[in-house]
Structure formats: C-alpha cells, structure tokens
Simulated scan of single mutants.
Amino acid sequence: MLCHRMLCFLGFVAIAFGFKSDFDSIPSQDPAEESEETGTDTLNQPDEPPFDSEDMYPDDFEDTEDIDDVAKPTNFIDKMSHHRDTITVRNGERFGKWGTAEYCPEGAYAVGYDLKIEPRQGRYDDDTALNAIKLFCEYPGGSGAGEITSTEGRWGVWQGRTKCERKGFLTSFILQVESYQGYYVDDTSANFAKFKCRDLRGYYKEKELALSLGSGYGQWGEFGSWSNSCRKGQAICGIQTKVEASRGVHRDDTALNDVKFFCCK
C-alpha cells in the first residue's frame, strides 16, 4: 500500500515538472519583460491613435499656418492634406462628362477666379456661353501658388481675374444655368459663376465676389441657390468641371454644364 502511494506521488511530481517545463518554454507576453530585452519601457509609451481617430484633429486647430506647433502623430500632415469637403449646387445641367479634379498645392487655397466665356454668336449660330473656370491659388502668407482649371470647353475667351480682399479665400459659389430647352432649341447650360470670400478662420462674414462683364455675357438662364460654405478652417482648394465635348458641325454644343469645388483644411 505504501509503495503504491509512493509511486503515485512520484508520478504526480513528474507530471507537474513536465507542465512547468512546457510553460517556461512559451515566450513571455508581458510588455515589461520584453522591455528588459529591448531596453525600452513599452509600458510608458502612449498608444498612437488610429488613422481615422478624431484625436488627430485638435478642436482648436483651424489653420495650416500653425501646423508645426501642434503636437501630432507622424501621419498628421498627410492626413490633413487629404481632408476635403465637396460643395455643389443643384441646378447643374446633364450634358458632358466629369473631368479630372485639380488642386492647389498643399497648404494653398483659391483667392480668385476667371471665366472663359463665348460671347453671343447671333441668331443662327450656336451659343455655348461659359466654357471654363480658372482658380488662382495662394498660400496664407500671400505668395502665389499657381492656377487650376480642370476640363475646359474649346470656345470663348478669358475675361480677366478677380480676387478676394486681403487674407480672403473662396468659400462658396453660385451658378447661372440655362435649363434644357428641348429639341431644335439652342442650349447653353452654364453661363456664369459667382463666389463668396471669407478669412480662413471664419472670423468675418462672407462677401460676394463676381467678375464685372460687359453686355453679351451670361445672358441665358437663372442663378440657383448658393452652395454650402466651406467650414471654418477650410477654403476652396480644388475644382472639377463637367464639360460636353464638341459634337461636330451643325450640332448643339453646351460646353460647361456643372462644377464642384473641394474645401481643404
């Protein structure tokens, strides 16, 4: 009986020793133990927020001018440069295809615009009116950053740039459009565009900005409603136009039909 108990006890010890050996062979999952090997204290390292976390956008951050002064993860600037809202109007027309969107350089915004307009062609010739919109980009410090247009119609001439007041940027727009006239009637679609300007931080109210044109421009159609405005801390930074390509001789062309703008922070 005693031998039987001793054998059981020795067997139990052997089994327990085997489990302990197997357990010791499993790599440690304790961050503190790993830190002793790597020489870093992982327990004191803050967790980096996920890429889409709201923590990456401080509530009081409204301007890219001070971006280097904000404590941020490494990918903060890249994320902000692609953070865009789209503003549109409801009265754009149906013809044509959307072209490639174009953007101001990173950190720059639209401060003014120009319109490419075909003047009235006469009773028996085809009219197209508005053919393209050009935006002029600047950095908040005032230095120029080029111009952008997206797709253009082939007709018309540029009317000359107009620009927001000092430290103002384009933030909303309105489009004059002639609605579809039906078969055997000349269509022109978009005829004219106006914008509103505001400071980047949104301290002041928007002010309307429009090209001053002589007679013969923007003769057809009506203005719809104003688009939404870019949020505080944002301004227009990109453009995408919907343009109908030339349809050939003795066909009704409309050129620019619709446009959308992008707001960047």
Rank of each mutant, 00 (worst) to 15 (best):
M56T: 03
N44H: 07
D66Q: 09
D60Q: 08
N44S: 15
D78V: 02
P27S: 05
E34G: 01
S21A: 14
K72I: 02
S35P: 00
D78G: 05
F19G: 00
Q45D: 03
D66S: 09
S35K: 05
D47I: 15
A32E: 11
D66F: 13
P31L: 10
P27I: 04
M56N: 10
Y57D: 01
E48D: 04
A14Q: 08
E62L: 15
A32Y: 07
D41F: 14
E65A: 09
K20N: 05
G39Y: 07
F19M: 09
F76C: 03
P50L: 10
V13R: 07
S81T: 09
K79L: 11
T42L: 07
T42R: 06
H83K: 12
S21I: 15
F19L: 15
G18M: 12
S28P: 03
E65S: 14
D78T: 09
D41Y: 12
K79S: 07
I15E: 01
S35E: 11
P31R: 03
I67D: 05
D47H: 06
Q45G: 00
V13L: 15
N44K: 14
Y57L: 12
F19I: 14
S21F: 12
P73C: 01
D60K: 13
G39K: 06
P46V: 08
G39E: 04
P73W: 07
D66V: 15
D24K: 15
F51Q: 01
P46E: 12
D78Y: 10
K20F: 14
F61P: 00
